[in-house]
Simulated scan of single mutants.
Amino acid sequence: MLRPEAWFASPASPALPSAIAPAGDGLPSAEFRSLHEEIVRYVRDGESAAAEPMTAGAATSLGAEARALLLRSGGDDDTAGEGADAEQRRRFVEQVAPLAREAGARLGVAPEILTAQAALESGWGQRPLRAADGSDSHNLFGLKAGAGYGGASVAAATTEYGAQGAYATVESFRRYDSAAESFRDVTRLLQSPRYRAVQGTGADVGAYAAGLVQGGYATDPRYAEKLQAVVRGLRQR
């Protein structure tokens, strides 16, 4: 699933209060909602051409503030955690460690690999999927809400990859009540026959990453490479 690269709106978001409260990216909630709704409209209207790479030049029809927010959230290579400092990374690992151990035991996968995957998808918890009011969806693994999914979701402008390279699109992503629920859901997914190749891979991150790619987990052609880089960083620490 590639870490979502833009910002989010719940399809059934309630009206926001007029009080100004900080939201995602440190913006007031009303401003955050206005900017990311502009981004979602921009993508849905087809102004970011599907075949055009996601670059500053491709976002020129957005307002300056929305363009800055989109590009700020859409940095490509945060594989080594450049977007989060050492203390933020330490806190993230500490917070998800028991969840990663439980999921790893069920899957037969080293917990640091699942920690690294959550870090890659969420930018070490610094770039979570957010609803229109800035609230966290707790979706640490970028799982999409497909046709058979009946739970809560958020509509998201995100980056995918095709024959022409990176392009912007709008997808529906799952929304959870907690990080623990996110870990349980990704565990259920990876226990399915589709991802049999990841099961029981232990500490072999190369085999795990190859299994994810084989199962179609992400469209990013460098996903396996990025995941392995994060795991290497965790093990060095």
Rank of each mutant, 00 (worst) to 15 (best):
G202I: 04
T201H: 02
R196S: 04
D136W: 12
S135D: 13
A218P: 15
Q199Y: 03
A152V: 12
D133P: 05
Y149I: 06
E181I: 05
L143D: 07
S182L: 05
V170E: 14
D177A: 07
Q228L: 07
D133G: 08
G165I: 03
A209D: 00
D177P: 08
Q214G: 06
A210M: 03
A145L: 10
G200I: 06
F141T: 00
S178D: 06
Y195R: 05
G211P: 04
A207R: 07
V198I: 07
G162H: 07
L143Q: 12
E181Q: 11
A132P: 11
G134V: 11
Q164K: 05
Q164P: 02
S153P: 07
V186Y: 04
A168R: 14
G142K: 08
A180D: 06
G142S: 12
A207H: 01
Q214I: 06
A147T: 15
L190C: 00
G211M: 01
G165L: 03
H138P: 08
L140S: 09
R196T: 03
A145T: 09
A203L: 00
R130E: 15
S172K: 13
Q228S: 11
S135C: 11
R175V: 06
A163C: 03
S135A: 13
A131L: 14
E160V: 09
A197H: 00
V154S: 10
Q199C: 04
G162E: 07
Q164W: 02
G200H: 07
F183T: 02
Q214R: 08
T169E: 07
G148C: 08
Q214K: 10
K144Q: 13
E171V: 08
Y208F: 01
G134Y: 14
G150D: 12
G148M: 09
L189T: 00
